[in-house]
């Protein structure tokens, strides 16, 4: 496409202007959160009614951060959440993509029934099965270093294992796999590759975008877990970040510390997202495959 040089500059300017305006609409909660985390409570609350909420003015300090660390074991909560989230995301990517591979590429007896069941579970909101699930996990066995134990309460595994597989992640992979060029898989099979090799050598390398999407989706679900850890974890040692948020909602809410805490716990999510950024744009083109 050819551009008139004068026009090109103008068009570029307009493009950036549009992008920036839209950015304004999306960035403000984060700006509000971070700015507020430096303000004392009274000023923070007074500022919420004006644009001052988005600028670091007035009595700025790190006091809220010190306060947050005094009030709650912030590091422990973040560590717990990162551990639980990380483990679940990794296991989920493996197990769900395997299942989706089977649904998308393989033909086996019972497949359609099983797939229908998996898809139907999409409709079940977690809140509605929390209590039956609680009763179930409180009686499940586990073999660990100390031998056979009964009951999963107050552990990391109770926060991880029930969340590994879910219909949405599998569906996500299935939809993506269906879009992949089928000849590739057949070519692989013709060359004598086993199904595992097809999965591992052919399909996975093409799945950057969907792996990133599934990982982000799972990460957000896991990192924001609230109801489930609340009912299965009674010991502070295993508490995750969103349950920890409750430490700040006393009869007098310490809003400044709340904002400081939220800013701190948002950091791991941002790092994770930035880390996955590149996978989103790793297109089919860059892997040298033609459709």
């Amino acid at each position: 496409m050819a551009f008139d040089p004068d026009n090109y500059g103008l068009r570029l300017f307009v493009r950036y202007l549009v992008l920036c305006l839209i950015a304004l609409i999306f960035i403000f909660p984060l700006v509000f959160m971070i700015n507020s985390s430096f303000k004392p409570d009274n000023q923070l609350l007074a500022d919420t009614s004006s644009l001052r909420a988005f600028v670091p003015v007035g009595d700025i300090s790190l006091n809220n951060y010190f306060g947050a660390f005094r009030r709650a074991p912030v590091g422990l909560f973040v560590l717990n959440s990162v551990l639980v989230t990380g483990a679940t995301v990794l296991l989920s990517l493996l197990i769900c993509s395997l299942a989706a591979f089977s649904f998308a590429f393989l033909r086996w007896k019972g497949r359609d029934v099983v797939f229908s069941i998996v898809i139907a579970t999409l409709i079940i909101p977690f809140e509605t099965i929390a209590i039956p699930l609680l009763l179930l996990v409180s009686k499940l066995p586990w073999i660990g270093l100390e031998g056979l134990q009964w009951g999963w309460l107050n552990t990391y595994r109770v926060q991880i294992i029930p969340w590994i597989a879910d219909g949405l992640t599998i569906f996500l992979f299935v939809q993506y796999f269906k879009g992949l060029p089928g000849e590739l898989i057949e070519a692989g099979r013709v060359e004598g590759a086993s199904w595992w090799q097809v999965y591992y050598r052919i399909v996975m390398p093409l799945s950057g975008p969907v792996l990133a999407t599934a990982a982000i989706l799972k990460f957000l679900v896991m990192y924001n877990q609230y109801l489930w850890p609340l009912i299965v974890v009674q010991q502070e040692t295993y508490r995750p970040v969103m349950v920890g948020l409750g430490y700040f909602f006393q009869l007098n809410v310490a809003w400044g510390e709340v904002m400081a805490y939220l800013t701190l716990i948002t950091v791991p999510v941002l790092i994770f997202y930035l880390f996955l950024q590149r996978a989103f744009i790793a297109s089919i083109a860059s892997t040298g495959v033609k459709g």
């Binding site: 209590i131 609680l134 009763l135 409180s138 009951g151 309460l153 609340l230 009912i231 299965v232 009674q234 010991q235 502070e236 349950v243 920890g244 948020l245 409750g246 430490y247 909602f249 006393q250 009869l251």
Partner: peptide
Amino acid sequence: IESFPEKSYNDSVAAAALAGN
């Protein structure tokens, strides 16, 4: 002692009671 956040304390206890804990 084990301390819980106040706003979810009752839910925590109800859940623990259900699970016999």
